[in-house]
Design a protein around this nucleic acid. Structure first.
Lengths: 384, 384
DNA sequence: GCTCAATAATTTCCTTCGTCAAGTATTGAT
DNA sequence: ATCAATACTTGACGAAGGAAATTATTGAGC
């Protein structure tokens, strides 16, 4: 009988990750999926069960020939540990508490009058306290916090190199947040965090390569290739919004011409709707209302926008060939106006078998960004 | 004293790869670069030296403070082993013999009157014999052959699923070629092979991510992301030629509109040059001559083509952020007409720091494709 | 020349981590 | 009851690499 350590740290991470992302699996099933021997899985599962992260389920109905010892699937004990995720925008903090299975248990937000680091950190501390000391008694079982920020973020060090929306330069967010909250903090770029969430817990589960496109003021894209998130050597990656799809299109604020964002970004849509309708006071919601009401001129703006997005997505499909693509973001609140045009643009411009790439177009609750942040901290925990 | 195996297979591959791609390195230097202990490198280097793949160089000049035992760099013994690489096109076989350091030692080509698998295999056998039994006496030290084919190739099994140019469907090229030549064969897509060559032995050395763009009849792109070549889930990747850069551009044979290839592919350039010049018999070379001679209308065709290519390259830079990009291919024979426009299109459309991505624009000898094939077999050997 | 600090390479254990093969456990079918 | 089939467990073993002591080789200072 052994009691002491059996040295199975890597296999433990692999097993926990697989059960987290793919649901209950028997030891033998895990062994097959992970390319490990069943012996290794048995050894790795033991401490995970002892420490309360996994539990054995009762055997379910048989599948194969019918004989043999029934498998006992291992499932996550989601309430074993909780994780806080916070998305930091220029005017608001959005926070959630997730369980180990990435289900949202509580959420809260907090306006951000001053987006300078000092104020943000103070408010972050209050928000986390509200979440953890509110109903649910999460404090005792929460040790980690994930933060999602737009811009150039170094996940390894938790340094925010540059965030245009927040006007931050070289803010050591990880250190500051750990000091304020006492939790172990992970910092990640917001689009990457959301992509990670979708890759581990959403539609990207099991995909070797995967893309998530966000449509809003900006148009961004998170990429997973060969199972790893793409970061870009010069700090740039996933800038689908600045792919040029129309050489004679409008000039973009980036200096390019016919960028997807210059045609389909929220600002661009409003601007073009104002022009075409002749109403210089139009808001985005007004434009949506007009288009839904059947206004041809404003409808065309949305059609062109959808088309441009579809072209950009096709560029992703043609270049990296992800096994699936999810399109989301607050801009998709009006996705009834977009969807067919996005699909049309994609199908026209996707090459050969890239057309087979399944496209999910659906709005996500804004809270999802905070869940992405929590997901990154779950990842960090599992890898630790 | 030990004599028997020391179980260092993975480290041997790592050491050999590092010395191959980065040149002579001391054991300590290798340890630092590879994240291994110097003990591990010592153990891995021993069998490689014994088997004649590496040799110790005399210590060179010192670098640091000046004291201490001088490092003895390990270098490849390039003539220890040779590799044949053959590129199969629709009308020709191009073959080379490379040494372990991927230097071309001999080359040959052979017209291919009938591109059906049977004839190709017979001619391949003759070509390989010519190369190995010609001057240089490579036969005895050659055990591997790499083949590069355009189209959808499964490198793992060596099956050519579909090659449009050759009209091949599901040809088990690896098995057939091993039977004919008696060598261990690796089969890879031609663009991926060339990308690999550039990544291991060319300008992509040391790059975590890297892109190679080929300009010719088709416009293709090989991608290395996170150190691994990108394959695409649906068999599609690197199809930069079918990214749409002009929503109101010409319709492409793929059904898209304003594809890079429909503007900058060799056929497209000839077609447009014929239209604009009013000379329906123009060849590509004629068009080049006219443009070089100062013909404004034909010159504009090349300018538009270069611009479209630049836009496509910018899309690559914006999406995956490679640390460098090489542009090549037979279309670049006229690269004096293209280069400035490619750069202009790239710089206009590359977003933010993506502009920093160095762009090498240069024609490569056609033999380089065959060298790519040889490189893939070197890779396979090193990993074995 | 001798000694010492500095750096490189080697050697000897030792830890980690996983497999293998032989068990045990639990079922349905005969 | 027996048997085949499947799942899981166990203990011995092997592969791979690391830590630290040891040896090797140099330049600098005396």
């Amino acid at each position: 009988m052994f009691t002491e350590a059996d040295n199975v740290a890597p296999a433990m991470t692999a097993v926990l990750t697989a059960v987290l992302t793919e649901g209950p699996l028997s030891r033998v099933g895990l062994a097959r999926r992970l390319g490990l021997s069943s012996a290794a899985v048995t050894k790795a599962a033991r401490p995970l069960i002892e420490q309360g992260y996994l539990q054995e389920l009762a055997a379910t109905e048989r599948s194969g020939p019918g004989a043999g010892r029934p498998a006992s699937p291992l499932a996550i004990r989601a309430d074993r540990e909780f994780f806080v995720g916070v998305k930091i925008t220029a005017d608001e903090l959005i926070g959630v508490v997730c369980d180990l299975g990435a289900q949202v248990r509580a959420s809260a937000h907090r306006p951000l009058p001053y987006p300078d680091p000092e104020h943000v950190l103070t408010d972050l501390g209050h928000l986390v306290d509200d979440l953890l000391d509110g109903p649910g008694d999460y404090r005792a079982r929460t040790r980690r916090l994930g933060l999602a920020v737009s811009g150039d973020v170094d996940r390894a060090t938790g340094l925010v190199r540059y965030s245009p929306f927040l006007h931050w330069h070289d803010v050591p967010l990880l250190d500051l947040a750990e000091k304020i909250t006492g939790l172990t903090v992970t910092v990640e770029n917001d689009v990457k965090a959301l992509t990670t969430a979708e890759h581990w817990f959403g539609e990207g589960v099991g995909a070797e390569s995967f893309a998530l496109v966000t449509v809003g003021t900006g148009i961004g894209c998170g990429l997973v290739v060969n199972g790893r998130i793409v970061s870009g050597s010069h700090g740039v990656a996933g800038e689908i919004g600045h792919i040029g799809v129309d050489v004679s299109g409008p000039v973009c604020h980036c200096g390019g011409r016919g960028c997807v964002e210059a045609i389909a970004g929220t600002h661009a849509i409003v601007g073009r709707a104002r022009e075409r309708s002749g109403r210089p006071d139009l808001s985005f919601d007004d434009a949506v209302a007009l288009a839904r009401g059947g206004d041809q001129r404003v409808g065309a703006v949305f059609a062109e926008a959808g088309n441009a997005i579809g072209c950009g997505i096709a560029a992703v499909a043609n270049l990296v060939g992800p096994s699936r693509i999810v399109v989301s973001g607050e801009g998709l609140a009006a996705y009834d106006l977009f969807e067919t045009h996005i699909r049309a643009g994609f199908e026209r411009q996707a090459f050969g078998a890239a057309t087979d790439c399944p496209l999910s177009i659906r709005p996500l609750p804004f809270e999802e960004w905070a869940r992405g942040a929590a997901t990154v901290s779950i990842q960090a925990f599992v890898a630790s």
